[in-house]
Structure formats: C-alpha cells, structure tokens
Amino acid sequence: MSQVIFNFFRRNPYLFLGTSTLLWFGLYQQLMPLSELLVASLPVARESHLGGALQFFFYDTPKVLLLLTGIVFVMGIIHTYISPEKTRAMLAGRKLGVGNTMAATLGIFTPFCSCSAVPLFIGFLQAGVPLGITFSFLIAAPMVNEVALALLFAMFGWQIAGLYLLLGLSVAIIAGVIIGKLGMEKHLEDWVQTMQNTQTATVVDTKAMPWSARLDNGFAHVAEIVGKVWPYIIVGIALGAAIHGYVPEDFMASIMGKDAPWWSVPAAVLMGVPMYTNAAGVIPIVEALIGKGAALGTVLAFMMSVIALSAPEMLILRKVLKPKLIGTFIGVVAMGIVIVGYVFNLLV
C-alpha cells in the first residue's frame, strides 16, 4: 500500500510537494495542543515539575524534528541543482572580496562532507580558485549549515538563527580575505603548489534531472542526516527538560554568564578545539549550558569552535598545508569566533 502511494507521488512530484507542505504546516500548528493532550492523558499533575518537564519534552522533540526534516528535505532538493563542480566553476578566477562573499554563501548550499574537505580544497586550487576564496568556502561550509540553522531556529527562534547565519558568514568572508591578503600560497605543501591552476574548471553533470530524482535525493538526504542526528536531539531536549527547574538556573552564570569575566569567550573557543562533532552533536551541550545560565554568545562561540576548528580536521589539513598556514588559519578563525561571541553577548 505505502509502495503504491510512494510511486504515485513519484509520478506527480508537484502534487507531493503541495500535499506534504500543507500536512507539515498543519502538524506544526497542532504541536502545542497535542503536547498538552499527551500530558493530560498521563497520571501526572500538569503544574508539577515533572508535568512541566514532560510537556516541554513532548512539544520540543516533534517541533525540532519536524523543522529539521523539512529544512533537510528542501536542502536535499537544492543539492541536485548545485554540485561542488558547479560551485568551483563559479568561483574560479574571482576577485578577493566579492569572491569570498560568494564562496561563503555557496558554502551553505553546496553538498559538503567533512571527509572530502581536502580533495575539495585541492580541486578548488587546481581550477584557479584563489587561496583566500577557497578558505572562505572551507570555513563556511561546515559551520553555517542547514542542520545548525534548523536547530537554532527551532530552539531559540529565527532572530538567533539569522544572527548566527550573518555572523558565521562574516567570519568565513573576513578570515578568507585576510588569508588571501597575506599571500600564503608558498605555505601550501609543495605538491599542492605544483597543482595550482593546472586544470580548467569543468562542470560534469549538466543533463536535466527529472523531478522524481530530485525528490529521491531529498528523501535520501533526510534519511542520511535526520537518521544520524535524531538521538543527539532527543538527548539534548531530554537534558534540557530534565534540568528545567531542577538545577539552579544560574549554575553556569558566574563562569559563562553575561557578567562572567572577559576571558570566558576565548576560554569557550579554546575548549571547543579538541572536541570533534557535528552541529547536532553539540546541541545537547548547548541546550544544557544555556539552561544553566550561560550567555548565548559564549555558548555559540563554543559551538562554532567545535564545528569549525577541530584537532582531527587540522591533522588532515596538515597533509596539504605547511604549519605556518595551519597556524594562520586557526588564529584568524579563532579570532573571528571570539569577536562573534562578544557581539552576540552585547546584542542579545
């Protein structure tokens, strides 16, 4: 039966998109009453600590998962229009500044897996994408991704997600411009230097894709991403719900709160470097820290540092970059993240 429905929708992609969008919004509207209904059906007093925690959990979990699934699905469809090869062709030979902005923005939409960061890096240089612009892409792609944005949006609202997007892009753009200005090409490993500008950027797949295949890619993306991150999200929300009212709210305030000493932001960035996980993996920690009174800017700086600056990734990059360039890369990005942390703390 489900197979029949599935095949029907594959033949009528627009109908599928219309129906599922309506269903999605309908469900999203009903989350609050549904969660209250669920708590009411349990033998727990709504006014009790446990009742409040359960309602928070029953409302937040489907909300975050629904938002994430929707955004990841749309991103899976967008990925069928834009490949790393197309992005590279668009960036080849661009000027500093405009090129960096384009690179960082394309970093959000281009399919990217951190395991192919190095081949991508060399591939860009080979086709004549300038070094600084390549870095802008490489910094933005993992940091400002749809999973991070969807989770921030679901948990803290669109203003925070928007601010993260803007500041994350700024870090990527400015760090790339600085690295470009410093003329660090000679600090690439020698075999990489000889490969620079040896290829013309070509776009491999230009053939039109049927909509059913684009939908398939959307489904595959959801299965891949949401299938991997849902346990982290549930742990994160459960943690958030559990400390809701049990742990004193100002537990972290003196070290990571708004009135914490000035060094709390750099310390958070430093702490994030040895940790290696994706956006979804840090969310439980973010949720717990904020629940205990840590300031948003300090926590987001920590989150950016975990995603963008990780020790294992540096080890892989060491294969193509000489120590001086790695050091510059870390220094510039860390500085940018610290500034973002301070700005967030000032604004929010």
Binding site: C113, S116, I122, Q126
Partner: peptide, 9 residues
C-alpha cells in the same frame, strides 16, 4: 585521487 579530478569522495 586528485589526478582523477575527483573533488567529492
């Protein structure tokens, strides 16, 4: 790998 011109693995 790079000699094959593959960027995403």
């Amino acid at each position: 790998i790079m000699q094959f011109g593959v960027m995403s693995t």
